[in-house]
């Protein structure tokens, strides 16, 4: 069973990597799902936790490299939000490495796949401990 990964990708450099990967015929596990956002700066820790609540085994944040934001959001708010979320899942008994922030150069499809595969391999035991996950099937 492959880990369920949710990717929050920014619309610009992040999405260009995903698109390039598909154009280059690179594949990734089907258990990886992608939500596209305008900018990672629009994401707060709450959404990351929400993903774990719904059963994600890992959350990957895919965005641009430092100082490359299309919107000029050059502060590191996403890193702060990541740290917040990591602290909280640690309290629930889940290692912080379940959240990964990948900053890639635009159109780096291969880099995206490498980062993603590395992330998936790093998740040794996909099952989130009981109690940390709330059954929320509609």
């Amino acid at each position: 069973m492959t880990a369920k990964i949710l990717i929050f990708s920014c619309n610009w450099d992040g999405w260009s990597c995903i698109d390039s990967a598909a154009n280059a015929g690179l594949s990734y596990p089907v258990s990886v799902n992608i939500i596209k956002l305008t900018c990672l700066s629009s994401l707060n820790a709450g959404f990351m936790l929400k993903a774990f609540e719904h059963g994600a085994d890992g959350v990957m944040l895919l965005g641009c490299q430092n100082q490359q934001c299309r919107y000029g959001q050059f502060d590191n708010s996403i890193e702060i939000e990541c740290d917040k979320a990591r602290e909280i899942i640690k309290m629930l008994g889940v290692k912080g490495d379940r959240i990964m922030l990948a900053r890639l150069a635009p159109f780096d499809g291969r880099g995206f796949i490498e980062q993603l595969n590395g992330f998936i391999h790093g998740i040794k035991n996909p099952a989130i401990p009981a109690g940390a996950q709330k059954a929320d099937k509609p």
Binding site: L6, I35, L37, T38, S42, A51, H54, G55, D136, K137
Partner: peptide, 18 residues
């Protein structure tokens, strides 16, 4: 933020994960 408010991201999350 229209197009990307909490209800939309939440719905997408749920659909993908469960």
């Amino acid at each position: 933020l229209s197009g990307q408010d909490k209800s939309r991201i939440g719905t997408a999350l749920k659909s993908f994960l469960c």
